[in-house]
Design a protein around this nucleic acid. Structure first.
Lengths: 239, 239
DNA sequence: CGGTGTGTTGACAGCCATCAAGAGCCGTGG
DNA sequence: CCACGGCTCTTGATGGCTGTCAACACACCG
């Protein structure tokens, strides 16, 4: 059940059999949530962290006027709530974007890991650093490029991240997000998300049908997005 | 020379004398840079990480049209380049916003720390998680609030972070950034930064004179900014 | 069959980027 | 000493990207 996480970590460095076993045995239970259900709330002090086994999750912050900003989209294999192990008090919420299954690891197990497995600790640390690299990229897109470019970038990124754990089907990924949710992620209005998607479709760059997103013109899309996967740290090397 | 970092960490948890000594002795050398000088470049593979001793630094990404997005502003006591210890290849640059002094710690020392000092390792990990929490906050500001509110938020945040390490003088902080640099940080044009600052000044919220920024109306500013310091994780507790 | 959620499109408005020009300040060099 | 260039700050005019409001189509579901 932790195989996708292991696969994700092994893209970045070799894990020993012992380390993999430690990971596999540290998860205590799993749980399923419905789409839209919150499973971590701002102000919570969780005693366990959760890993996405299946489905999509969003990390988000609310703003007083009723708006919402999704700061990260998490897919299967993402250790979505590893942050709470050290941050203790949540400064944001996490909710399901689709029906989702997650696995929980008690913080006490994570602490034991950090006591006994330094390299594994570094790999989990790395995992959160890659999350941070994605934040930097989103900030750059939000600050310095157009809505169309941002949307194209998000599609490229999600395709890259899903391919990495075997969740793409060639040029197609399954992406069950509404346009309102895409807007919350990109900081755009729902109406403008619709316009931007139409532009990408009419430009022959992507096809978007029933949650199935197909990239039709890679060069064109990556050009609009100015996408380069360097920030995803996909190289395997000693860490 | 690492006292500000130690102070910053001790705001979040108790450090043993041994841990403090380990930190103090792991830094190998210091270096000074002029304002505007880059000291880490995209694509670099540093063999050491650097801590800001004095001055201001910016983490930034360039975009193809010549634009720049500053993704983080770092102050004295910030372990600005701890990321490179595990990310290996830099996906962004770091440059001096003012004359700056930094201290370098070889990655081999950091690795030894992670082998022998699990709690200290967690504290450094925490340090990068707080950077990530700041990214989330910036994303939320950028995505869901006005330019004026973003600027007010940045002022509140920098005052809070500088106070934490003793770098504020009551309601005043020293902030040697040009309006162009503020624009790069907030994703705004220089012209609009100027207009927004005028608005904050004329509203009696802040005074900005010769790099000295004084908050005149805390309630007003925090209200415009919708600022709450929760995300900075200033509570001391076992980590 | 009506209600709800989602996608779609048009009209209009507003925030912010861009372009342009001038003022103040500072260091440099004649 | 003064002229000059460069950088920063400031302000106005204009335009475009994106938000808001509104309406309708469609699918799904009780």
């Amino acid at each position: 059940m932790t195989e996708l996480l292991i696969r994700k970590l092994e893209q970045r460095d070799v894990l020993s059999d012992e380390e993999k076993d430690v990971l596999r045995h540290s998860f205590a239970r799993t749980h399923a949530y419905r789409a839209r259900e919150d499973f971590v709330r701002e102000g919570d002090r969780p005693k366990e962290s959760c890993l996405v086994l299946e489905g999509f999750a969003a990390r988000y912050k609310l703003v007083p006027d009723g708006g919402r900003q999704i700061t990260a989209i998490h897919i299967a294999g993402d250790f979505v709530d590893l942050h709470s192990f050290l941050l203790k008090t949540m400064d944001h919420g996490v909710s399901a974007l689709s029906p989702i299954r997650v696995a929980y690891v008690p913080h006490s197990n994570l602490e034991r890991m950090t006591q006994n497995y330094p390299h594994l600790t570094r790999m989990l640390w790395l995992n959160t650093l890659i999350d941070a690299a994605i934040y930097r990229q989103w900030l750059t897109c939000k600050g310095r490029s157009s809505a169309t470019s941002q949307m194209a970038h998000l599609i490229c990124e999600l395709h890259a991240r899903m391919s990495e754990v075997g969740l793409s089907d060639g040029d197609t990924i399954h992406l069950p997000l509404t346009q309102a949710e895409l807007g919350d992620a990109l900081g755009l209005s729902t109406v403008h998300v619709n316009r931007v998607l139409r532009e990408l479709r009419h430009g022959g760059l992507v096809k978007w049908h029933q949650n199935a997103v197909t990239i039709l013109d890679w060069d064109g899309l990556m050009n609009v997005a100015d996408f380069s996967p360097l920030y995803l740290n996909l190289q395997r090397e000693p860490r």
